[in-house]
Design a protein around this nucleic acid. Structure first.
Lengths: 246, 246
DNA sequence: TCGGCGCATTTGTCTGGACATTCTGACCTG
DNA sequence: CAGGTCAGAATGTCCAGACAAATGCGCCGA
């Protein structure tokens, strides 16, 4: 085992050394140079080879363990995980997911306006009941077919959103480029039968099963930045979630 | 700010010092002694107060940052997050969830037998198509009402499961006490209309919306330990998921 | 032949220190 | 008074080393 992977470091780079190491090990795993189950050199040897200290090597390895690429075992060593676990733990929006799947998403903005917020949503967003928030209603298409009806509430002043922006890019992408750093999302996923109005928008029959999702997203300060209540055509869409326990 | 929290350490305990510190800070946050937004003492001062080195303090704080309880900002300090984010990132089973919610779950085992596995599931579990795996079919009740139909496939030899065990405890709990260390779960969540047979089991009408979940769980080596395909009554149940981006 | 003991290996925890980077706020200047 | 500049404070990164604990394997004895 212990494939002889070549790692070169740039000490003049602003990129931390532990991160350079981690990236290159991850790349070797992706390329297949490090096969699943193969053992890495032990930490001390690795540190010696690269001219780094053991804590730095440990930080690099820990980073990859957290991402689920490596497994450490005391007394044994560090191995590349077996199995082809999908690693999609990122905070993504429907738009991102669709585009990655090559589905060519399209969006129609139905409503985009400041609106006095009802009590429940106010509590979630942490603003005063009755104050104004940005209300947003969109119809999302994929491959030319209607896929979902999306309702969102956002604190005012977070980002300057226009209908044109929203029809060409995803909400999360727009928030990110406005400097919003999303970190935690809480989602409740359920199902119910379509109402008449929903059926008409989504080109389904009344009573057709819909997937529902209520999501609140928080930034790195723990402040709510977005609350959404969405319905998806169950016949055309399902959600994928990966959980990693530390 | 900088509440004067008292932390006592037991150096003779096998529990790592960083973990003792982290636990007690987390407890102070839960109790409310450390209000959201309040700043912790800086790392050096904290290390000094507790008689520990800075890396140890950093490890404790990092642990809580990963769990989403604290926020660090270079040049500023470490703060308790604002907002009441729910922190349930654990790998739990339906049984655990229900019992925690005080719902008093009950289980009826419909099938429990070794069975030749079809190709698709064989590929997922990483065994040869046609070889035998443990097949399990259960009906789950909560508060006296049928809630879900659960189908599972498990590699043979993983744990000695009996119908009696399965009717008194959850599958995950049984696996854990058999020494299985589950670490990653991949779930696909969708919805569809109930078939006649499902409707009868769940006391719903045919065509009623059901929440569907297909889940594969892997251990810390990346080996599949469980594959399940479940349907839930959407009228009685929804799933909650929390995502934390690092 | 089989079971248990001990040893080598490897990661886990902890120390003490150094310098770099980033953010905030006060001060100074135009 | 507005703007930029600089110093202080805090976290981020990195080093060198020490001891502890768990694992797996080989050796040895029954």
């Amino acid at each position: 085992m212990t494939a002889n992977l070549a790692i070169d470091l740039d000490r003049s780079s602003p990129v931390p050394l532990y991160f350079q190491v981690a990236e290159q090990i991850a790349e070797a795993i992706r390329r297949g140079d490090l096969a699943p189950g193969s053992r890495l050199d032990n930490e001390i040897l690795l540190a010696d080879k690269l001219g780094l200290s053991r804590p730095t090597i440990r930080q690099a390895i820990q980073y990859l363990v957290d991402k689920g690429l490596l497994v450490r075992k005391r007394g044994v060593g560090t191995q590349v995980v077996h199995g082809q676990v999908k690693r999609s733990v990122e905070l993504t929006s429907l738009y991102d997911d669709l585009r990655r799947a090559g589905q060519e998403p399209a969006t129609q903005v139905l409503t985009l306006e400041p609106r006095a917020v009802e009590e429940e949503v106010a509590g979630i967003l942490g603003v005063q009941a009755g104050s104004e928030v940005l209300y947003l209603e969109r119809l999302r298409f994929a491959a030319g077919e209607p896929l979902a009806v999306l309702h969102n509430w956002l604190p005012v002043g977070l980002a300057a959103l226009t209908a044109a922006d929203l029809e060409s890019r995803g909400l999360y992408e727009l928030l990110r480029s406005a400097g919003v750093r999303m970190r935690v999302a809480n989602q409740r996923i359920g199902a119910r039968a379509a109402t008449q109005a929903e059926a008409r928008l989504l080109e389904e029959r009344r009573g057709a099963p819909l997937l529902t999702m209520v999501r609140t997203t928080y930034d790195d300060q723990g402040r709510a930045v977005e609350h959404g209540s969405h319905v998806y055509r169950a016949s055309h869409y399902s959600l994928e979630v990966t959980l990693i326990e530390r």
